[in-house]
């Protein structure tokens, strides 16, 4: 007769939960790939300005000969921004970047390499560039690019996508997405299968225990091992193991010479 107590129910319940977790992982993997980012209210210039926190629209600076952009203005609480980050100018206009002196060293670097200023930190330092041809120029500050210190100069009457944001396009394209989806799904299924099998085994073990709860535990005696042959201590020659160790030893010596005498002493090294 089998007896159930709440303590004994544990294993099977956990096993069911574990099996379920694998299936849930499969579902999450598939649905995570279906999501898209929300559209932004201003043009993000192919995402160039999507992580620039002080960007809220292209500022119209047309009709002037000279336009000033400040370097080192507040951008999400840190002085790592261009002010304003996006401007629209007429062809032939000179843009003057003026350093505020905040946020240490900054520079102005064209994404396409057309211009690059010196790194400077002092307030009042300026760098200027005249934009003759129509188009969109993306630029950044090299030390703080990762912090969203990026900007855009729109020269002339360029179509900016009518105010709509670029839809989120994950890198890799449709094939990559499908491939990753299948991979995630399969790994989820595999995980579910492994966890499920594990759970089934522990359920079986538990059930057996429950069934046998009244009978005495049967201990199967280990089989007697028979000694086939005895040899003396010095008669045993593990030549295979010895050969393996000699191989390892040679590899070590070669690596030692390469590392110290070629790699370490071969180039400039600290001598004082």
């Amino acid at each position: 007769m089998s007896k159930r107590t709440s303590g004994q129910r544990g294993p099977s319940r956990r096993a069911v939960l574990r099996g379920g977790a694998g299936i849930a992982a499969t579902a999450t993997g598939a649905s995570a790939l279906a999501g898209t980012a929300a559209a932004q209210p201003q043009p993000s210039f192919d995402g160039w300005l999507s992580d620039v926190q002080n960007y809220n629209g292209v500022i119209d600076r047309t009709g002037r000969d000279e336009v000033t952009v400040r370097v080192g203005v507040d951008n999400g609480g840190q002085p790592f921004g261009f002010g304003p980050p996006a401007i629209q100018i007429d062809p032939g206009t000179t843009v003057v970047w003026e350093w505020t002196g905040r946020g240490n060293q900054h520079n102005v670097v064209d994404l396409d390499g057309a211009f690059e200023s010196e790194l400077a930190s002092e307030a009042g330092y300026t760098f200027e560039q005249t934009f003759e041809s129509e188009g969109v120029t993306k630029y950044y500050c090299a030390p703080h690019r990762a912090l969203g210190m990026k900007g855009v100069v729109v020269t002339g009457d360029v179509e900016l996508g009518g105010g709509g944001g670029q839809p989120f396009e994950p890198p890799g394209g449709a094939f990559g997405l499908t491939f990753m989806g299948i991979l995630l799904g399969l790994s989820g299924l595999a995980g579910a299968a492994i966890l499920g099998a594990d759970g089934y085994r522990s359920y079986g073990a538990w059930k057996e225990k429950v069934t046998d709860v009244e009978g005495p535990a049967v201990e199967s005696a280990p089989e007697e091992e028979t000694v086939e042959r005895t040899i003396g201590h010095d008669a045993f020659d593990p030549t295979g193991t010895a050969a393996l160790l000699v191989g390892y030893f040679l590899i070590l010596v070669v690596l030692w010479i390469l590392m110290y005498f070629v790699e370490f002493l071969g180039g400039p090294t600290i001598i004082g």
Binding site: N104, Q105, N107, E118, L119, A142, P143, H144, A146, G272
Partner: peptide, 29 residues
């Protein structure tokens, strides 16, 4: 300093071959 070497990042450090160079490096932050 975050995130540049001055000099080094904005302008390369340049020395002639056969030189003995002593570097003094300090952090601003």
């Amino acid at each position: 300093q975050r995130f540049a070497f001055v000099p080094g990042t904005g302008e390369p450090i340049r020395i002639p071959a056969g030189s003995e160079v002593t570097f003094y490096v300090a952090s601003a932050d």
